[in-house]
Design a protein around this nucleic acid. Structure first.
Length: 487
RNA sequence: GGUCCUGUGGCCGAGCGGCUAGGCAGAGCUCUGCAAAAGCUUGUACAGCGGUUCGAAUCCGCUCGGGACCUCCA
């Protein structure tokens, strides 16, 4: 297996990836909180990890990919005040909390499927692991690093920080954190201002609540990931991922919980994906600048000129490295859409390429470069640059300006299969179905009639056919090899 | 205020000490009854000022922009 380098947030360097128990790899990614529609920024993170999952699998690892669904316990504020997001939405919509959860979980899966993201190996829910979360909280209390106060269980950050590096992920100083954390009302139960809740006492009106050794309540947000990653991947696993906005609080607390629970830091490699921005600002629900995937597909959004296909959007995201911010704009999306189309057109050309006895191009070197790009912290933009070199070669060969042996043609086909389809998860957006087959037959007939008119130099008829087709958004292209059409 | 990231050609976006990134747009050419499309070729760049170095977009310092986190967020 080739050497793969991964940027590790724990060390802030690129490190060679070494699996704990190769060829098996444990990968945990923080999934969505299902209280409303996922927006495009959320999707970016999951598409990045989908690509990472696909590449690890492609190079031979057996990956167990766990991505949770947060369906309880996520409060409006990390300071452990305010309402549970899902309960709040349920009250507003006059629905059961689990109806909200179901609706947005299904919506999330549908969207990810449109983006051709593979389903994770396990998608555990927070509500399905209440017992496990309580067990971890109990053990942390037993280990002296959490305390119960008036029905709520808090993690004692300052005590933990005496013997452990609480801020490994952010490299911040604890004193500075203490100075900069706001004092909030209703927090009298806490001993330290950085302490966070493992279990929260439920008010009578709270909808989602469970019995516990500390009374009726619900789990804190951070502890669900500790519980589920430990349950399915063990106390120590290979990669933990999530968006960069989770790094400072959620992941920091998760590591602290795991160490307090079993003395072990959960993951060897922490990977963080960067944000999708709109006009330079982070796309987020609270800023009100988020795009829903469906708005993007249909073009039904004030900032959009038109709709874009899921694959064009996926390509758009793959053109940027996962650790860079990606700015969202019509121009950028348009550019990506055209590039994606060219990539797919070239694949068609590749299928009909005529082999030569010798090759003028070095395809195996190009393939090697593609692997080098991916092994360098999953550098998909560089991979794409190499693929466009392949496109140039394919088109030149088709124009008889370059030659390829059958072996090289096969190698190119493999490269497409491996990098474009398997790793980046792009696919051809083919029109299938009876109606489209019928249309193809009709178009064949029309083109045949028009070509007869052209052969008779009856350009009036041929142009009339072309103009009429253009009116119904069918475009005619006359090429050397014959006439093509596209919608 | 603190911590950290970032500033690349008209636009998007790689590179992070010496070698063409790539895409889109623009220009030229090829194909063609015309058109469109497509293909090929191609120009323009590293925020500013200092420093280190034989050599800097790439390292260091300062200045000026932009952003993230410290409050819910992928």
């Amino acid at each position: 297996m080739e050497k793969l380098y991964i940027y590790n947030t724990l060390t802030r360097t690129k490190q060679e990836f070494k699996a704990i128990n190769a060829p098996f790899v444990g990968l945990y990614v923080c999934g969505p909180t299902v209280y409303s529609d996922v927006h495009l920024g959320n999707c970016r993170t999951f598409m990045s990890f989908d690509m990472i999952y696909r590449y690890l699998t492609h190079i031979g690892y057996k990956v167990r990919y766990v991505r949770n669904v947060t369906d309880a316990g996520h409060l409006e504020s990390d300071a452990d005040v305010g309402e549970d997001k899902i309960s709040k939405k349920a009250k507003l919509s006059q629905l059961e909390p689990m109806e909200i959860v179901q609706k947005y979980t299904v919506g999330f899966r549908d969207v990810m499927s449109l983006f051709n993201a593979l389903p994770p190996s396990i998608e555990p829910t927070a509500t399905g692991h209440i017992i496990e979360q309580q067990e971890i909280a109990k053990q942390i209390i037993k280990n002296g690093l959490a305390y119960e106060s008036n029905g709520t269980v808090y993690f004692d950050v300052e005590k933990f920080a005496k013997d452990n590096n609480y801020t490994v992920l952010t490299n911040r100083k604890l004193e500075e954190l203490l100075e900069n954390t706001r004092e909030l009302d209703g927090q009298d139960d806490k001993r330290g201002r950085l302490d966070f809740a493992l279990w929260i006492k439920a008010k009578p009106e709270h909808l989602m609540k469970w019995p516990s050794p500390w009374g009726v309540g619900f789990p804190g947000w951070h502890i669900e990931c500790s519980a589920m990653s430990t349950k399915y991947l063990g106390e120590q696993f290979d990669i933990h991922g999530g968006g960069m906005d989770l790094q400072a609080t959620h992941h920091t607390n998760e590591i602290a919980q795991n160490i307090a629970y079993c003395g072990k830091s959960p993951a060897n490699y922490w990977m963080h994906t960067n944000m999708l921005t709109v006009n330079g600002q982070k796309m987020s629900k609270s800023l009100g600048n988020s795009f829903l995937p469906m708005e993007l597909f249909t073009g039904q959004h004030p900032l959009l000129e038109k709709g874009y296909s899921p694959m064009a959007v996926r390509f758009f995201m793959m053109q940027t490295h996962y650790r860079s911010t990606l700015d969202f704009s019509n121009d950028a999306l348009n550019a990506a859409e055209k590039a994606y189309t060219r990539l797919m057109e070239s694949y068609k050309t590749l299928q009909n390429l005529k082999p030569s006895p010798t090759s003028s191009e070095k395809i195996n070197e190009l393939e090697k470069k593609c692997y080098e790009a991916m092994n360098d912290d999953f550098n998909t933009p560089v991979l794409i640059a190499h693929l466009f070199e392949a496109i140039r070669i394919i088109n030149s060969t088709n124009d008889n300006k370059a030659t390829l042996t059958q072996e090289d043609i096969n190698l190119l086909k493999n490269m497409y299969q491996h990098f474009v389809f398997d790793v980046m998860g792009l696919k051809k957006e083919e029109e299938t179905g009876k109606a489209n087959q019928a249309l193809a037959g009709v178009m064949e007939l029309i083109i045949d009639l028009r070509n007869k008119a052209k052969a008779n130099k009856d350009y009036a008829t041929s142009d009339a056919i072309r103009n009429k087709l253009t009116e119904v958004n069918i475009q005619i292209k006359d090429t050397k090899e014959g006439t093509n059409w596209s919608i």
